[in-house]
């Protein structure tokens, strides 16, 4: 998760409570919003005696996380009024244990309320497919139009060297549901977004085999990667024609 969001947001409050750990942060230019939840089910055990916000610089956290082995068991601990976050990595055979503390920071961040939205279009597709579309179209243009209709969803762009588009139609993969593409539509939508941000969101592709895109005209796009016990959501403000 940290790897997926560290290029978008830098200083974040990890809000800990009985439900687990949540994070909400805007990127510096206030175009995108990251919303992450890891429920208690992601941890074993999980204990939180008092609601607490752990202000962490993600670059610092990455430096420490890179010291962990892929299969290590990670324990995160913070005291009641902490100055630091304690991280312990234990190898699966328990023959190696490493321990780090990183300094916490006071982050004065405004929390935005995200209204419950009935989206006009909800599209599920393989995350690798979405990553490829964003990467391919970003070679041509800064922006992509996403047009969802009953016939399918069309990603199109135009730039200095020409234009391009990719159209996806609903498709069911009976062996692996994450490789299916589905489109639920209540009304057609057509919105334009910055590809730079979408390419950035796709760094989360390794977290989930499929990604959900939720669109309504004139509101931010929701790009959601579901995780076993939580989610990573990105909201992106649309571009509006003059």
């Amino acid at each position: 998760v940290v790897e997926a969001i560290k290029d978008l947001v830098q200083d974040c409050n990890f809000d800990c409570n009985d439900d687990g750990i949540q994070l909400q942060a805007m990127d510096n230019s206030h175009v995108a919003l990251v919303s992450m939840k890891l429920s208690t089910g992601a941890f074993s055990p999980f204990r939180c005696d008092r609601n607490i916000a752990l202000g962490i610089n993600l670059n610092s956290l990455m430096k420490v996380l890179r010291a962990a082995g892929n299969d290590d068991i990670l324990t995160l601990k913070a005291e009641d009024q902490p100055d630091s976050l304690n991280l312990v990595f234990e190898s699966p055979g328990q023959d190696r244990m490493s321990e780090y503390d990183i300094k916490l920071m006071d982050i004065d961040q405004e929390h935005l309320g995200i209204p419950e939205t009935e989206y006009a279009a909800t599209i599920s597709l393989p995350s690798a497919e979405f990553q490829r579309i964003c990467r391919d179209l970003s070679a041509l243009s800064e922006s992509v139009s996403i047009e969802a209709s009953k016939d399918g969803v069309k990603f199109s762009c135009s730039g200095d060297i020409g234009n391009g588009s990719v159209t996806l139609r609903p498709h069911t993969n009976v062996e692996d549901e994450s490789k299916s593409t589905s489109i639920a539509l209540t009304e057609p939508v057509n919105l334009t977004f910055s590809l730079k941000y979408l390419v950035n969101f796709c760094k989360a592709s390794s977290l989930s085999g499929s990604v959900q895109l939720c669109l309504s005209n004139e509101v931010p796009l929701l790009v959601e990667f579901k995780m076993g016990a939580g989610y990573l959501r990105f909201y992106l403000a649309p571009k509006i024609g003059d």
């Binding site: 805007m26 206030h30 175009v31 995108a32 919003l33 405004e110 929390h111 935005l112 309320g113 995200i114 209204p115 922006s143 334009t192 910055s194 509101v219 931010p220 909201y235 992106l236 403000a237 649309p238 571009k239 509006i240 024609g241 003059d242």
Partner: peptide
Amino acid sequence: MSSQRSISSFFAPV
């Protein structure tokens, strides 16, 4: 040309 909207123009602080 199109202009980029800000996310905070859609979601209000709580």
